[in-house]
Design a protein around this nucleic acid. Structure first.
Lengths: 344, 344
DNA sequence: GTGAAAGCGCTAACAT
DNA sequence: ATGTTAGCGCTTTCAC
């Protein structure tokens, strides 16, 4: 910066003021400085600036993975907002418990970001308290944490309405396929199960725990076992609500491989509206992770500007049922329990 | 840090030395300092440190998107390596031309990272030269740039062997479906086309430009049009080599929706081995983006330590043909051209 | 509107 | 083995 100052024949203060766009610089001097900066190919060091301003110009995010449709889209949306505000994005990927412990032990983001966004983790009380002491705004994304700013989709309402769609078609035996061990997304998982149960209850259908099965996400083998358990019931389901599109697709694949028609014999509803849902013409409950990312970004920005405001703000985003080609009325007025009814 | 020093009854230098794990600290003092630091919940500011060391402790990556299997997996792999080395990851997402221009105009990474990894962009000469002047190691990922360190998969060989697999099954009319406008991945696209042509040439099959069609990635509508063009040929293909799994899946979907059996009447090969390839039992050419990310990270680290070394190192990673259920010998000794042969 | 000078929180000589 | 001191490159008073 001293070089630029010398070349422009002004002081470093003036260069600083000019480059930050402050108004108190005469047009003539401004032009000289800008030319000098361009000629010297100069860019100010954020680090030196942050040392004195206390701002880092950086937002940190904590994510369980980057190989996920949800996280990818959410971070893209977030990136958009941050870039517009001149902030950069530091990503901490915490794939396992060891890394997670290390992160909360050292809190490497501590003085190196202006805000932290925590994605999809089911945090312990202690971890949350640790983040409270971080000295920067923390926004919880895709989860709700009492008394802290959170942004998430209304999973309960989404699952409720997705299940209602099946009920409205006439289904009475509706299974729920949930995922396990997906490293950090258990929060939405539980909420969606709640919505599913709520829909059945309001329709006066007793809950049958045999209809709730689990599978590892995106695993064809696991999905096959889960579907197998459902098909082996005395009264198998005529519809399946899957916690995510990936699971829905695996279920459909398994059913069709067995010669069971979707939606002819079994209807399937997913959750997410990932690209794969389009390929399969999957009826699903759509959410917009990119919007979540944007909203979380805006919230973080406002918290950076005014740490007092909105401390407890919870932003609940809507979902939308998208009817496509994997749902239809159940095959026939149910007769005797028979897992393989005669084809039409 | 001064607080910690006071509390431990030592100088700031000693605190600094202790916290950085230097050896020249007596065990007794070290213990005192560490306790004080823990009690005060102290973490050193990277920014202040970087100001004097010249190192930022930060690696920047430039990616066209985060909503992509390839990028997500590659960054996960990269993150692993960086974390192990105590470095952080700053992500610049450049989704469009305006953002791209802005990035190269200001080069915000300039003094704020120790190295830059550029993913999958088809850079202009000028952009490359601009990066040369960045004053930090730049590693090109998923593309080759002459005279600069690059890490990429052998797309040509992959497509060559994938196409050979079809040839070996007896196919002679093999189409190539490429993607367009996917914002930055055109590099691999071109290379794979080269491999496809090479395979046909070495098998003595003349190239037929009618068999090379394009579609927007992951778009069912576009894929339908591309497939339509192929089915409308006087002599339609018996096999399709798709540039990516997503396209392969869209092609399969379209074919099956039309009543054309895969692989009974048309074989399909993809490229990537994404999760979706498993759901569809898709024969594909596998690559490992997570390995690419790791290798690129290692290369960047070595370049940071010794900017002179390996300046021109090109790391070419292998691919692997994975035969699954979407390839089979062509239907029959070809008779009269008929897009819809009678079903068996 | 512009310049001079005092730090921000660290690390790296240099002393001791 | 530990302390002292001089900056790193900026921003921000405070003068003018």
């Amino acid at each position: 910066m001293a070089d630029v100052a010398e070349r422009a024949g002004v002081s470093v203060s003036t260069v600083s003021r000019t480059l930050r766009g402050l108004t108190t610089v005469s047009p003539e001097v401004r032009a000289r400085v800008e030319r000098a900066a361009r000629e010297l190919d100069f860019a100010a060091s954020r680090h030196a600036a942050s040392l004195v301003t206390g701002r880092t110009g950086n937002v940190a995010v904590l994510v369980p993975t980057l190989s996920s449709w949800f996280v990818g889209a959410a971070l893209s949306g977030l990136g958009l907002v941050l870039r517009a505000a001149g902030l950069e994005l530091t990503v901490y990927v915490i794939p396992d418990m060891a890394e997670r412990r290390a992160f909360f032990e050292h809190l490497p983001a501590r003085r190196n970001a202006d805000a932290l966004l925590v994605f999809s983790f089911d945090l312990t009380e202690e971890e949350t308290r640790r983040l409270d002491k971080l000295g920067m705004p923390v926004v919880y994304v895709s989860q709700h944490v009492d008394g802290r700013p959170s942004v998430y989709v209304d999973d309960v309402a989404g699952a409720l309405r997705g299940t209602r769609h099946l009920l409205n078609l006439g289904h009475r035996r509706i299974a729920y396929v949930q995922t396990v061990g997906t490293g950090g997304f258990s929060f939405s998982s539980q909420e969606r199960l709640v919505g599913y149960r709520q829909a059945l209850t309001e329709a006066g259908i007793p809950l049958d725990e045999d209809l709730v099965v689990a599978t590892p996400a995106g695993d064809k083998r696991g999905a096959a076992e889960a579907v197998g358990r459902l098909l082996g019931l005395r009264e198998p389901p005529t519809a399946v609500f899957a916690e995510q599109d990936e699971v829905a697709v695996a279920v459909i694949w398994t059913l069709r491989a067995t010669g069971i028609e979707v939606p002819g014999q079994v209807s399937v509803v997913g959750f997410d509206d990932q690209p794969v849902a389009q390929w399969f013409d999957l009826t699903t409950v759509a959410q917009s992770p990119s919007r979540i990312g944007r909203e979380a970004g805006e919230l973080a920005l406002s918290l950076i500007d005014d740490p007092g405001a909105d401390r407890e703000r919870h932003l609940v985003l809507p979902t939308q049922v998208i009817p496509r080609a994997t749902t239809a009325p159940p095959p026939a007025p149910r007769s005797a329990p028979d897992p393989r009814p005669p084809s039409p």
